[in-house]
Design a protein around this nucleic acid. Structure first.
Lengths: 216, 216
DNA sequence: TGAATTTCTGATTACAAAGTCAGGAATACT
DNA sequence: AGTATTCCTGACTTTGTAATCAGAAATTCA
């Protein structure tokens, strides 16, 4: 009966595919690839499990399709960064981190996916590197290198610096369940988010700069 | 035949239980709870799968037993911290972070487990909070609060600060597979580790202090 | 209208992985 | 020696889950 209502257009194709991808993204990011199961995703999307296999060949392909949803987000970030190409690298880096924070709060799935697959290794990480995170990581590392060469950033290995900054920024967001259990703190509240952003951008990034007052 | 050698004492009980726990810890931490399977763990430990169920009731209990192996490590850290109770809180915090880094490099399992379960939530996180990470987290947060009250640390929310610092420190270690794929960098090499430690303790922690030169 | 196409589903299959159990082998106890 | 106990195993059962498939329902097109 609920079905009859939603099923008014029998060829509701693209719409259901989108719902499936959204449900898949949510569950994959919250639970990881193995723990998220097709039945759950189907239920979340309001379709039968067989429908998943009609739209997507197998679980891995569904996962990739869900990941590609995130590309639009990344693309937007890249567009904004391009527009600031002529500013000094340390300013670009700060902008990039600010965008990373905004994106991470708006799309916590991204950070969780990267953390999950980035720890595990394997074919899904290879795929992520090629399609989502690799180009971005390498560009940020170049930015850090440029900032180090110009003397604005302290001379730490650029790759380690970039990953550490991102891990610091995403940590509190990814570990929200632990923050709730250990501290009974809800970090999704606006005040917590604002403090978090200041801490990352001013204190931590500031500690990496040779002259913290320069970009503030 | 290899069995006959190792099996000299037929009641090799405790020894095999230990081997099982070690294998379980390694696999659980590398793959997470679901991806690690009993057959793998049994093979790694050199026993049959049924033996796992002889020593441990089920998979969850085996997981808990493996986690308890890590308690000794944590306990050592706590002991060292107790000995420094009379130093200023910001110095204690720096010590704690230095120990956290050492422990994380020596036992990468810990950080991976915390990241995996801390993102997912659920009964395993509750258990970890009660038995492994909760008391430690809360003590570090108290330390941070004290350092903030004394004016040594910038006034960010202590809980967020502590988790961010740990996430920053563990990030590069946990994400070693991603560092390898994205940058072709092996962060387990000594130079990378030394740079990482300086970055966390001096630059990042320094950025959180009101007077970075105080504890260096 | 009626055939063809697209979208979706219930029922089923295939398989992997957790968990059970009867019994064998070594050792300890008397 | 003989019995009991501990430790371990191969074979089996059960369960959870991905994947398949024949066909139903809706829609489009001729």
């Amino acid at each position: 009966m609920a079905k009859a209502l939603a099923q008014a257009p029998a060829r509701k194709g693209p719409q259901t595919a989108i719902r499936i991808r959204e449900a898949a993204l949510e569950l994959f990011s919250r639970l990881g690839f193995e723990r998220a199961n097709m039945a759950q995703i189907a239920a979340e999307a309001g379709v039968s499990q067989a429908t998943l296999h009609y739209h997507f060949e197998d679980k891995f392909q569904l996962w990739r399709a869900a990941m590609l949803q995130l590309r639009a987000v990344i693309a937007e970030e890249e567009r904004l960064l391009e527009a600031a190409m002529d500013t000094p690298p340390e300013v670009q880096l700060r902008m990039a981190m600010r965008m990373f924070l905004q994106i991470s709060w708006r799309h916590p799935a991204l950070g969780r996916i990267v953390a999950l697959e980035g720890m595990a290794g394997g074919e899904r990480l290879e795929w992520l590197d090629a399609h989502l995170i690799g180009p971005r990581n390498r560009r940020l590392a170049e930015l850090a290198k440029a900032a180090i060469d110009s003397g604005a950033l302290k001379p730490f290995p650029a790759e380690i610096l970039i990953i550490t900054l991102q891990a610091a920024a995403a940590g509190v967001i990814n570990l929200a369940p632990m923050m709730a259990v250990s501290f009974d703190v809800d970090v999704t509240q606006a005040p917590a988010r604002a403090a978090h952003e200041r801490m990352i951008l001013d204190a931590l990034l500031g500690g990496l700069l040779t002259d913290p007052s320069a970009t503030t």
